Computed example of a mutant assay.
Amino acid sequence: MNEALRRAMANTRLTDRQLADACSVDVKTVGRWITETGRVPHARHRWAICEALGEEEEVLWPAAAKKAVKVGPDREVVSVYPYRSSCPASLWRTLITRAQRELTFAGYTNYFLWLEQAQFGTALRRKAAQGCRVRFLLGSPDSSLTRSREQEEDVALTLSTRIRVTLAELEKIRSQPGIDARYSDGHAYLSVFRFDDDMIVTPLLTHRVGHDAPTLHLRRHQSDGMFDRFASHVEELWNRGAPVREGEPHGQA
């Protein structure tokens, strides 16, 4: 019996059925997670469970968390996904919700976040009001690099259109102090999303859109490790970037 999981469900008054729905699994699977000794859900399900119950992974499955601890140079790599689209939406929600100091979205368009995260703008406004720094690093919709990448992607929903969607959404929330945006072309083939000491990194592949790109979930564990090097890259681009001014035209392609 996983007493920690059973107790967390009781504390939150979450039934087997409700947890199954939250994880998109059969209710019998939840029953096995609770009753079968040593039964550990897949990583994506553990994230969904932790989010639903408001608990830490090491509390619910201490043995699995201990086994996952690394000591080598790859210890900052939490998870690897062959596609960004296979990185669970629940992971993004959890990282956004838990961040207290910094949220940096250095994707070339950041368009998918507005589609996949419910009430994303409201969440960002709330985070900024609580003192969390919120930054967006975007490609310019009118740059020659954007036009070149549009030819590479050759999809109906162009990069410039996706950037303008993000600009339009940012326009709605930038009256809240603490939310800022800049343009940069330096991350056209590398998206970096930072949530305090967690990070999602996506190196974009030629002729592929972002959701097809391989994706890493990193967590900072050392100085000048992978996390710090990607963070420094983004800071350099931010310092060089051109401000996105409030009220800037964005409606026309």
Rank of each mutant, 00 (worst) to 15 (best):
K172A: 07
L145P: 05
F136M: 03
L145D: 10
G139H: 04
G121D: 07
R98V: 04
G54W: 10
F230C: 13
K70G: 13
P214R: 04
V80H: 15
A242Y: 04
T29Q: 13
L237T: 07
S232L: 04
A99R: 14
L138C: 08
L237C: 10
P249Y: 00
N2S: 11
F136R: 00
R44K: 15
T206M: 05
D196G: 05
G107I: 04
A52N: 05
W92V: 11
S24V: 11
P177E: 04
T94W: 03
R6D: 04
F230T: 08
E3F: 05
R149Q: 14
R32E: 14
S232E: 13
F112Q: 09
A52L: 02
A123K: 14
F195Q: 08
S143P: 09
R75A: 14
R194P: 00
M226T: 03
D154S: 11
S143C: 06
S148Q: 12
H45K: 05
R13C: 13
S86P: 09
T35V: 06
M199T: 02
S90D: 07
C132R: 10
L138F: 05
V192L: 01
I49N: 03
L103W: 13
R162E: 06
A123P: 01
G178C: 12
H207M: 00
T37Y: 00
E235N: 13
A106F: 11
I200P: 07
N239H: 15
E55H: 05
Q18I: 00
I173L: 07
W61Y: 15
H233W: 09
V69P: 00
T104I: 14
L103I: 15
E58M: 01
C132H: 07
E153S: 01
V201A: 12
P73L: 11
Y81W: 15
V209T: 11
A129C: 06
D228V: 03
D154E: 14
D228I: 02
R229T: 13
G72D: 15
R133Q: 08
A89W: 06
E58V: 02
G31Q: 13
L14R: 12
T215N: 06
L204P: 00
L14I: 13
G225S: 01
M9G: 10
G225F: 00
Y108S: 03
W61P: 13
A128E: 10
W238I: 02
G247K: 02
E36F: 09
W61C: 13
V69H: 07
C23S: 06
P88K: 06
G131I: 06
Q252R: 13
D197A: 00
H217T: 09
V134Y: 10
